[in-house]
């Protein structure tokens, strides 16, 4: 991979109390690729995403996005630097309509005309949302909610998309469609994706790079195809 690194993480330490959940995480994600972070429950995958997007303050370490050190950047500014975080449970605001949720994703943008175009593109991409513009968030199915959360992130035209457990609670067909969409976005728009997954197989199937976490550290980062196909590696790090 010769593409420049969009995201560089060095020695990231973060957690919620005295004991850190992340213990010196190092990670790089090349521009225009999909990286999948996998690992057991409690390995620190969600905490990693939350530390990257500033939802929790890292105790130590460095996060560099497109050459810019993000230390001390307030959460609400990160979206302006090109980072979009779709949180666990996806964060659709139930009390707002589909249209309001989507527009919210582009409100920060100065270029109103392009924010409007991005909104139209999302409605084209997710046709079911276009039919339910005026429905409230809590009236949507699980699959529609995921479309909404993803679409809302895309309205901001991010460079880096952080996705927390996109397959959680969804039918396999919906998961497959989501993964295909991520690949399509990568190829068409050069979107870079860092996704965290419990579902190792589907994550490694879509990803360019696989990152295995255990007990708050990255134990191996390798091309996803290698992790998928090398039986020894799979046994050693993924347990199947």
């Amino acid at each position: 991979m010769s593409a420049p690194d969009l995201l560089v993480v060095r020695g990231l330490v973060a957690g919620y109390g005295a004991a850190p959940v992340l213990r010196a995480v190092d990670l790089t994600v090349a521009a225009g690729t999909i990286a999948a972070v996998v690992g057991a429950n409690g390995a620190g995958k969600t905490t990693l995403l939350r530390a990257l997007s500033g939802m929790i303050r890292p105790a130590a370490g460095q996060v560099v996005l497109a050459g810019e050190d993000l230390r001390g950047t307030p959460v609400e500014q990160l979206v302006r630097r090109g980072m979009a975080h779709v949180p666990e449970g996806r964060g659709v605001i139930s009390e707002l309509t589909v249209d309001e949720n989507l527009r919210l994703g582009g409100l920060w943008r100065r270029d109103r005309a392009d924010a409007g175009r991005a909104l139209d593109e999302v409605y084209e991409l997710f046709e079911p949302l276009a039919r339910r513009r005026r429905h409230l968030g809590h009236q949507l199915s699980g699959g529609e909610r995921q479309m909404l959360a993803l679409g809302r992130a895309l309205v901001g035209r991010p460079r880096l998309l952080l996705l927390d457990e996109p397959s959680l609670g969804l039918a396999p067909r919906v998961v497959a469609r989501t993964m295909a969409l991520l690949r399509q976005l990568r190829d068409r728009t050069g979107l870079t994706v860092l996704l965290v997954e419990q579902n190792v197989r589907s994550a490694l199937a879509v990803a360019d790079q696989g990152v295995v976490m255990s007990l708050g550290q990255v134990v191996i980062a390798a091309p996803a195809a290698r992790l998928r196909d090398d039986v020894d590696l799979r046994h050693a790090y993924l347990g199947f």
């Binding site: 605001i93 309001e100 919210l104």
Partner: peptide, 24 residues
């Protein structure tokens, strides 16, 4: 209005709103 949408979003879901660039 956009500011009204921001205010409602910030009240309903402060954390998500910050991720979407709202000054909660």
């Amino acid at each position: 209005t956009p500011v009204g949408l921001r205010m409602r979003a910030a009240a309903f879901a402060p954390e998500v709103s910050r991720l979407l660039g709202v000054n909660v």
